[in-house]
Design a protein around this nucleic acid. Structure first.
Lengths: 235, 235
DNA sequence: CTAAGTTAGTTGAAACTTTACACTAAGGGG
DNA sequence: CCCCTTAGTGTAAAGTTTCAACTAACTTAG
């Protein structure tokens, strides 16, 4: 916040700062991340995490900047948003010492309406394979994405975070399926339900059921929007 | 990483970026954090987390900048260092839209040799009481410190992180005492030892014992420096 | 030389949790 | 109206944690 010669504070060269997002959704194919194809240099034509500069006169704070990027690319206004970290070095951007403040967002696919525009010539979902995506990514975005995937996968083990990949109303079976797809292993039904009941973060929607050619299932919703609860054991 | 009109990229006003550190150590009084008293405006005379600008021509990356600040203030070269987050907004610094990249460091008190200099008129350890420090802090450093304390306290529950508050050689009794002081509750000796053995992150130093007027205790060291292991249950 | 005091390190029974799996429930489709 | 499927619950066996007591090894006091 201060340096060794405060009268020189504005003569220090400032790094470039961007806000970049790893926006995750579950599709039929599995976990996918939203990528944007760059229209201009550097890395013109390459895929990258969607992002943008901080608009000093428009963004109140970092999270507002992240929400603006998310809204511009997906049309989604209030998803789960979490800071993953900052990546900064002299080498990561040919234009100079730069800094990427990275957020991850979890959205329900049915809420997204992809948007192009700006300096981006294409926007698309890309399936995640292990800890990466098939396309080579601009800058150090492959490393950033890897960190975001690790964070997401890790939190699945001990939190209610995956609920944000589902639409507002969902059944316990659907929630369990989300956990199982993210973890890559199957879970015991009764243990899963006990854990979810214990942390008390969802509530049944009175009288609403998911109907199919079998016993109907109770629909649930999040108790307080945007809350994540942590278990004290792994799931 | 890119914005809506790339040819304007340099006309966007860049935020101010600093790297600030919450440096923790355990003293006889308990958990303390290192504070620096500001010599110049803004907040001249106020206590703040030690920090500095990124030196674009000197720091290779963010962590190098954090290590430089740590070395300058404490003389410590290779402690445990972890990024806590970025705090950025239009309002947090009167000089304009600014960004604080915050790290927390855990050091063993006996390794530190406090250093003044630069734009700082005093450096001192301040005891942590609950989730704050007695002194009012400059900028939003109280909120940043609160987040760092929460992160530390939380990680004590399920990781081997507290080991970094001890000197290189320590006994299991000393390690348990660190956990107990941070958690504010006592732990069962046999359960504690079982957990530590299970995650296999320390090793006995052959033939070295802590001697006192009682049965001598085996000294241990970290197996690989700077590694933190996570338990899959709370301690 | 020995007894008392202190902390190190181990052991085991009882209480509690988790796991695996089987069971009952409720619908639609043939 | 039987069969199939998925929802939701129950329970015995296996595994973990807790609590507390035990043995070990040293110093100091007498």
């Amino acid at each position: 916040m201060f340096h060794s010669m405060s009268s020189f504070e504005d003569s220090y060269q400032r790094p470039i700062v961007s806000v970049d997002l790893a926006i995750f959704a579950l599709t039929a194919a599995g976990l996918e991340v939203l990528l944007a194809r760059r229209g201009g240099a550097p890395f013109a034509g390459a895929w990258a995490l969607p992002g943008g500069w901080i608009h000093v006169d428009e963004d109140e704070d970092l999270e507002a900047a992240a929400r603006r990027v998310l809204r511009d690319k997906t049309g989604v206004a209030t998803p789960y948003l979490e800071q993953v970290g900052v990546y900064g070095s002299a080498a990561r951007d040919p234009r100079g010492w730069s800094l990427s403040v990275t957020y991850m967002a979890l959205i329900s696919l049915d809420a997204a309406a992809l948007q192009q525009g700006g300096n981006v010539i294409d926007v698309a979902w890309s399936p995640i394979n292990g800890e990466a995506v098939a396309e080579p990514l601009a800058f150090d975005h492959a490393a950033i994405l890897k960190a975001a995937i690790a964070r997401l996968r890790n939190k699945v083990e001990y939190s209610t975070l995956p609920v944000h990949l589902l639409p507002e109303a969902f059944t316990l079976g659907e929630l369990q399926a989300v956990y199982e797809r993210l973890l890559g292993r199957s879970l015991d039904k009764s243990a899963f339900r006990k854990r979810m009941a214990e942390v008390d973060f969802i509530e049944p929607i009175e009288g609403e059921m998911r109907r199919a050619s079998n016993r109907p299932a109770q629909l649930y919703r999040l108790k307080q929007a945007r809350t994540t609860v942590f278990f004290d054991r792994t799931i």
